[in-house]
Design a protein around this nucleic acid. Structure first.
Lengths: 359, 359
DNA sequence: TTGTACGCGTTATCAG
DNA sequence: CTGATAACGCGTACAA
């Protein structure tokens, strides 16, 4: 009975896919021999001549192993999932790109999904990935607490965090993040060196680890220079969006005076530029602005943004490497990688202008 | 502290996945009944009470169906693949985002991969997706001919093209593209209305359908106004990158004079800006520039780019809808959707300046 | 070195 | 309406 016979009850598929049994028949060997001959790990168990015959037969029939059948047997899908909050946020594509490239090189397929920062959606997607038996999961979106990690644990899926850390104590998961604390310090040091003393901080949304780390880095950097962090104007934006940045910056401008602002995120800077323009202030000339991320094209905006560059690609690559390593050996100690950022000086910062308008 | 670190009574470590047989035992029915009760399509075949008991048992055991086992049986993985040339190119994230969102809503998982515009890599990735038994494939990267589509046909995988069309005659595949021909016409009409008569075209790489369509649209738009297309300076960039744009623009500037340039792609415009600056020319004031795509943040560059806006998200959404429809009914006629673009006027275009320097 | 036998978890079919 | 049974395609102890 040939496997290409139509199976009663199943719709007549257009493609009569060859199975391992077909290859076995074609090569004049048994199916298990085919399996051994074609699996690199077990090729040694078979005679050179047989291996060749099998390979030729497989080629002739255009046979492709079914990852589903193999996975069902091995409990491994050679598939890895990655969850990002919002693909349209330009910091994620480079990460995703690096991840996919590395995983593809190791023979893994990448299952991608957007959570839209919605915990319920995130949970649903994780379940779906569990259903698809992903071998590992990369979370760039675990903003809303430990729910996602709990799910991974329940499904027994190895996980790694990207650009996010859980609160201290929940350290059972590796994370690859940027050194946000030190990064914002670079920006503050730069502003101080330019002569600024009244520096504001436009912080990210409360509860997000990058926002908290950058805020504390900002305060510590001021304190290190003998300035009082409590005297600095500080405001949290509602989200990492241009609109939220504009609103927050407008509010900041209504408060105590400052000559420079260290912003927690490039996207917020776009709104910051708008708010300054609306207030009749010039970036750099009247108020210096620093960003964070060095996302694509901020070197092209007007004026070019001085910002803290994150190693996006390295982040994705390292996270993927760590995940693969922990999949191979779950007993491996968890890691907490902080990549070191770098300040990129452009045109949005300048010495304080004593003649600047009000703020 | 995680809530799931230990379930009392169960051994810690790798999660003991429940199977359908466990649920059947728990609910006191047969495995087939469980399958029927939990599958929305067959729920009607079981008693209400039984369905409820089964659902509860499944919930109690935390059972998740194995997509692998189900797929092995049904020959459907509820997974769809999407190939993009380069995730870092900002036109793709919105497309991918829209695709994933729509597919997720229909219960599909999205397998994503970068081809890096490498046909060999593309072929490998398609094979891998075939291996994973994707139910359909979306190709945003079929630049190098019909090889990809041949593979899909051989594996019997329904496919849809995004932002790319095959040469006429290869029309066995649906495609969702932008109306590139008409789109560049909008840009040319705008430049003509401003008073420009010597308009150049910085074209995209030869052999890419978007580049060819935009080029012919450019020529037709000139001809429609009684201008001679053959007199217009035209040069192909080597790739859709800023660097290629800069090189091509520099070459264009060395040729016959023009007061405006319709560029085939926003990314090329970035290089165009550089080349103009290097030649001591001001964008808009000396040479008007139009782009194509309206990719993120070109409204923020200096000067803000006048460009042709593509409906990226709609492109992804429509393509996904078409793919799902054709998967459901392969006999459906193939479609060739052209989305209509829109001109966005910003600051990179102005009336011709008679006093401009040389070009 | 190769063949045999079985199981991975699910669904389709047929019998009751 | 439900139970029993047989695939789906492959990997792998175990036997030969």
């Amino acid at each position: 009975m040939s496997s290409s016979d139509s199976i009663p009850g199943l719709p007549p598929g257009p493609a009569p896919r060859a199975t391992i049994a077909d290859v076995a028949r074609e090569a004049g060997v048994h199916a298990s021999t085919v399996s051994r001959a074609l699996n690199p790990a077990t090729r040694g168990m078979v005679t050179e001549g047989v291996a060749q015959r099998v390979a030729e037969a497989a080629e002739r029939l255009g046979w492709r192993p079914s990852a589903l059948a193999a996975g069902l047997r091995t409990r491994k899908s050679r598939t890895i999932g990655i969850l990002v909050p919002d693909l349209v946020n330009p910091i994620f594509p480079p990460i995703l790109h690096a991840v996919e490239t590395l995983l593809a090189g190791q023979g893994y397929a990448t299952l991608m999904a957007n959570t839209a920062n919605d915990p319920a959606r995130e949970a649903l997607l994780i379940e779906r990935m569990a259903t698809h038996l992903v071998d590992g999961l990369m979370l760039a979106s675990a903003a809303a607490g430990t729910g996602a990690l709990d799910l991974c644990a329940r499904f027994g899926i190895p996980a790694v965090l990207i650009n996010r850390r859980m609160p201290a104590g929940c350290g059972a998961t590796s994370a690859v993040t940027n050194d946000d604390h030190g990064g914002i310090g670079l920006a503050v040091a730069h502003l101080l060196a330019l002569g600024h003393r009244r520096i504001a901080h436009l912080a990210g949304p409360e509860g997000i680890s990058t926002a908290m780390d950058r805020l504390s880095g900002f305060r510590d950097a001021l304190a290190a220079q003998g300035l009082d962090p409590d005297a600095a104007p500080i405001l949290h934006a509602g989200a990492y969006t241009a609109a939220a940045g504009q609103a927050a910056m407008a509010a900041l401008l209504a408060g105590p005076r400052f000559t420079a602002v260290a912003v927690a995120n490039d996207m917020l800077c776009l709104g910051t530029y708008d708010a300054l323009a609306a207030a009749g202030l010039r970036v750099a000339a009247d108020v210096s602005v620093t960003g964070f991320n060095d996302m694509p094209f901020v070197d092209r905006i007007c004026p070019a943004l001085t910002t803290v560059r994150i190693q996006h690609a390295a982040m994705g690559r390292q996270a993927a490497e760590i995940l693969l390593a922990e999949m191979a050996d779950p007993a491996l100690p968890r890691r907490d990688i902080r990549l070191v950022p770098e300040l990129v000086c452009r045109a949005s910062t300048a010495p304080p202008n004593p003649d600047a308008p009000c703020p």
